[in-house]
């Protein structure tokens, strides 16, 4: 198997936790993994991107080539488009529908949605609302992780274990609420696929 994923969002939205959960799940399954993170200046409310590569074969580059990503997974709709040139033609774009508006010239959200719908393989869900229902809004990143699991060939149980390893230190309640958010995201993506195909 091979999954090359571009994760995107705004500094502070928790894309590193998504990457870490998938990364742990990959290691449980003895897969190779490379994950590049963003540190430093760009963390301060700017656009952030991280790459995650999982494969049954050894992985060379930390960077994914343009036009080669299997998936763009975004916690913010405009940010899902910023790295579109990395996506391969058959790749999946999976994004949260809720905009994070911290700039004056944030475009009309409908134009953003229109661009997203132009992508053949896309899933767009309201992760904030879903997270609010089953956990807290802060868990919207885990909702997006759940949506992505539909398209990554790693057992769901391992993803749960990955979440446990990351949030374990913060207690059982926190861990369970993140797992719930992840499962709800997966369900929402399934529903989106049914309704839009």
């Amino acid at each position: 198997m091979k999954s090359d994923i571009i994760l995107s969002g705004v500094g502070g939205q928790g894309i590193i936790s998504i990457a870490a959960a998938i990364g742990e799940a990959a290691l449980i399954n003895d897969l190779h993994m490379k994950q590049a993170e963003v540190h430093g200046m760009s963390q301060r409310g700017g656009a952030v991107q991280s790459t995650l590569r999982v494969s049954s074969k050894p992985i060379a580059s930390d960077l994914i080539a343009y036009g080669a990503a299997d998936m763009i997974l975004s916690v913010e709709p405009m940010e899902s488009l910023r790295y579109l040139n990395y996506l391969k033609p058959e790749g999946w774009l999976i994004t949260n529908a809720v905009p994070f508006v911290n700039i004056d010239d944030y475009p009309n959200i409908e134009t953003i949605y229109a661009e997203i719908r132009k992508i053949k393989n896309h899933v767009i869900i309201d992760a904030d609302e879903i997270a609010g229902k089953v956990a807290t809004k802060r868990a919207s990143n885990m909702v997006m992780l759940g949506a992505a699991t539909l398209f990554i060939d790693i057992p769901l149980e391992s993803v749960k274990e990955g979440i446990r390893q990351i949030f374990g230190k913060k207690g059982e309640a926190m861990t369970q609420s993140n797992i719930d958010a992840m499962l709800a995201g997966r369900e929402a993506a399934e529903l989106y696929m049914k309704q839009n195909r």
Binding site: V10, G11, M41, S42, Q43, R44, G45, G46, A47, Y66, G67, M78, E79, L81, R82, Y83, L84, N85, N102, I103, D105, Y106, P107, T111, I112, E115
Partner: peptide, 13 residues
């Protein structure tokens, strides 16, 4: 390849 022109810059702040 260019990205959609609707995407605005989001600088760190």
């Amino acid at each position: 390849e260019p990205i959609p022109s609707t995407v605005a810059n989001r600088l760190p702040a």
